[in-house]
């Protein structure tokens, strides 16, 4: 079975999905990422799907689960690089990925996570709702 590589860059794990994943490969990625977040202590995950020409409900659900699991493990997920045709198809399919942060490319995704880190530093002392602090966009 193929495996999607997970790269650590500073405080971020970067996953660039370059293959048409079997369902088992997607599930393996979900497990690998959770383990790597805990092992490395990073606070951000970027999933680059620019090479994917479709995202069906299984992959969509897997991405949503990765984002939820990451959040529980104190890391924020940003999905980057979605193709326009994939976005149109996903919404028509009925999967609008609620609660998942997106950016147009890896660079903007890194910027987004950087702003989150800055804001967390400011909020560190009086942050009684950590879940709320990271949701807003500037």
């Amino acid at each position: 079975m193929e495996r999607v590589p997970v790269l650590k860059i500073g405080d971020i794990l970067l996953v660039s999905i370059q293959i048409d994943m079997e369902d088992q490969v997607a599930l393996q990625l979900q497990e690998d990422l959770a383990e790597r977040i805990v092992a490395t202590g990073v606070h951000g995950v970027i999933i680059d799907i620019s090479a994917l020409d479709i995202v069906d409900s299984f992959v969509g659900r897997t991405i949503a689960t990765i984002a939820s699991v990451s959040r529980v493990l104190d890391a924020e997920t940003v999905v980057v690089g979605m193709r326009p045709a994939v976005a149109i198809t996903l919404v028509e399919l009925g999967l609008s990925l609620p609660g998942i942060r997106t950016a147009l490319n890896v660079e903007l995704g890194i910027e987004m996570l950087g702003r989150r880190a800055d804001r967390d530093d400011e909020l560190f002392d009086d942050d009684d709702e950590p879940g709320q602090a990271v949701v807003t966009t500037p």
Partner: peptide, 29 residues
């Protein structure tokens, strides 16, 4: 992969290719 290849061969638009391959993926699963 087969549906993608045939979609390109019949010249479906890119969005329609994406929709058909996605639908085929759901139904094959």
């Amino acid at each position: 992969q087969l549906v993608r290849t045939v979609s390109v061969a019949v010249k479906l638009s890119l969005v329609d290719q994406t929709k058909l391959v996605t639908a085929a993926s759901e139904l094959a699963r």
